[in-house]
Write a protein that binds this DNA or RNA. Structure first.
Lengths: 191, 191
DNA sequence: CGGGCCTTTGACTGGTTTCAACTTCTGTGG
DNA sequence: CCACAGAAGTTGAAACCAGTCAAAGGCCCG
């Protein structure tokens, strides 16, 4: 099963049916309801998550008590607090389902074991991280290059369907401004 | 040679003398003067760079003509425009030496060849990218969490020696504000 | 020793936040 | 299936963080 995971693997590497089945054995399936947390502040973030269906968001709690969203993950995206995962330290983030969501998960130790038996998975993750890092680099550039208003129009241009999919206050948070200001931006364009 | 590269490799993997020599053959040495560019806007960013000695910065030119610094790399850091490198597209960044600098470089094709002969290097780069991505994730969090003033104090606390090493206007640019504002922050603390 | 680059200072400006009040949407229980 | 309460979105006024501009001072390197 997990057609979508296989599809994602095949973007980077080739695996025959038997090898895919073997690889899949290392992963667990999890189903979470909307608003349910997959990970909370203080947890050891021992796993990484691959979204099969649905949408996750990562956020932390700011000084003033507000939730600051830093990432979204939809189908075929990996998500975790990499710092906590790698250093085996407690996380300061939450991972929450924006919609009913199913994920594949694997912990650090199991993944190391997987790498030993299927070295091609090392290549797969090297490529996944290379892309993720590249995306992250680009995002940092946008944060420097664009005003908040431009960030919104740029994001809307790149992911129009996703903008429809999530509540505005989450999008505002992700783009680094307030829901009130997003309202203002949207009303400006209407006129 | 290249004691420092070997030192870095050994943080992640083990290689005997012979294998290290073989690996090193795939890399080129480059020496660049202060203010010289290793890469310019429009270039195909075909290589990745490992800093042996010195300091690089990556920047792009904003609409208003100003240089916006997005990254620094000192000894033992890798630097490249990953997006351009991976997709084989022209870059929109510059990479420039802040000090006289020596780097190791390798292009995409050579690196693929290296992975074939020394699969352990695939593991090395998987780990390097995992860390880089984690660092990038943390940096994005800081950009959301801190005011510009807090960003400065936080950075100064984490890298006090590096703050001394580079001109203030570059640091201000990297932290996302103007040299004037950095002056203001610094004068506030003096009083 | 001089010129240009870097840093500092101050006045003014504006993009974005904060706060509060109001309206609209949504989902859950009766 | 409707009612209603809480959540999400809108609007406007006041405040503030940080940018812009201009001018002066300091310092490095040729």
């Amino acid at each position: 099963m997990s057609v979508i995971f296989r599809k994602n693997l095949e973007k980077f590497i080739t695996l025959n049916d038997q090898n895919f089945d073997e690889v899949l054995q290392y992963f667990d399936h999890k189903t979470i309801k909307k608003k349910q947390n997959l990970m909370e502040e203080g947890d050891y973030c021992s796993e990484i998550y691959f979204v099969e269906q649905g949408c996750l968001r990562m956020f932390f709690i700011k000084e003033n008590g507000l939730e600051q969203t830093t990432e979204f993950a939809i189908e075929q995206w990996w998500m975790t607090d990499n710092f906590s995962f790698e250093r085996r330290l407690p996380t300061t983030f939450y991972i929450q389902a924006v919609e009913p969501t199913t994920v594949l998960s694997i912990n650090n130790d199991k993944r190391e074991a997987l790498f030993k038996i299927h070295p091609i998975m090392e290549q797969y993750f090297r490529m996944v991280y290379q892309r993720s890092y590249a995306a992250s680099q680009r995002r940092i550039r946008y944060l420097y290059e664009f005003t908040r208003e431009e960030l919104y129009f740029h994001f809307e241009g790149q992911y129009p369907e996703f903008v429809q999919r999530i509540p505005q206050y989450m999008l505002a948070s992700f783009l680094g401004f307030t829901p009130e200001y997003l309202s203002e931006i949207r009303s400006k364009r209407r006129s």
